[in-house]
Design a protein around this nucleic acid. Structure first.
Lengths: 160, 160
DNA sequence: TATTGTTATACTCTATAACTATA
DNA sequence: TATAGTTATAGAGTATAACAATA
């Protein structure tokens, strides 16, 4: 068997595996976004935190980490760093003083708006090889997978 | 604005983001596969290494790590562990004695075949909410994204 | 009693650079 | 010189358990 055939077999097997496809697509996009964010001195997690705060959902520091899969321990350090750079403010939630409500500072909003442009460009370039209706289809399917996987294991905290 | 509306806005924004969709789908599947592999005492990376070796492509230890995005430093420790458990053998490549060819031992083959069943079941359950043609479409698109992203940055080492 | 955020500790993976043996 | 694998070291991120403040 030639090297070319071997490689073709390998690719055929890999292109069949959901785990490989999702992890590699995710990794390749993540690497690009991380590189693109370097000039703003933001890690991907830091960007995600700013972005999630900006969406104004009623999330505590812990909820926020859970939404993206960031460990609570890691969250403390990340928010410490963002607060130290005056991008984010911790505020005690008056309704439950154990929880923090996180807010963007004006500087945080400005940094985020620059970061959003950079990240969106990065994502658009990554999605370039797909026609818009193709991505739309993928998008809907991934959302279905995520919703289904989460509902089975975590639940939203709401009684449905 | 009610909490329900806030959450709906959040979900709408997240379901629009390629980065969120890919990272979370990947993470949720990875967590399931990792849990499923615990009884075999295999980490996901260890499983991936066994699986890639079994595909018989002409890959060295380093190539293998690059295919999945495993750091060379990490590879050393992982292969050390797999070799210590008699699942894998290192062999000097006679054509280039700097490189290792990795081989499965009989025990490695047996472990892998059990692991493959477990991982495939896990992936099938994860993909359950999609109709087969839907997944087929997603599969093709993800493969296109990966091929395109890799060709732009890495190249295969072959002159084309 | 239970939960949010915090700290401490150990572990895994990554990034970087130096080393070795080969090429 | 350059490359494959290794080692050492430092830095992220995660898992676990304990703790303070609050519910």
């Amino acid at each position: 068997m030639t090297v070319e055939q071997d490689l073709q077999n390998l690719n055929e097997a890999l292109s069949q595996s959901a785990g490989f496809l999702l992890s590699q697509a995710s990794r390749l996009l993540r690497e690009r976004v991380e590189t693109a964010l370097v000039p703003l001195r933001l890690s991907l997690y830091e960007y995600v935190i700013l972005r999630l705060i900006s969406l104004e959902a009623p999330m505590s520091q812990g909820d926020l980490g859970e939404t993206y899969g960031i460990d609570p321990t890691t969250m403390v350090g990340l928010v410490d760093g963002l607060e130290g750079r005056d991008l984010v403010q911790r505020q005690k939630d008056p309704a439950d003083r154990r929880r923090y409500k996180l807010r963007l500072t004006p500087k945080g909003r400005k940094t985020l708006s620059r970061a959003k442009r950079i990240v969106n460009d990065s994502q658009s370039r990554f999605l370039e090889p797909l026609a818009p209706p193709e991505w739309e289809q993928v998008r809907a399917c991934l959302w279905k997978l995520i919703s289904h996987a989460q509902s089975k294991h975590i639940g939203t905290g709401e009684k449905t």
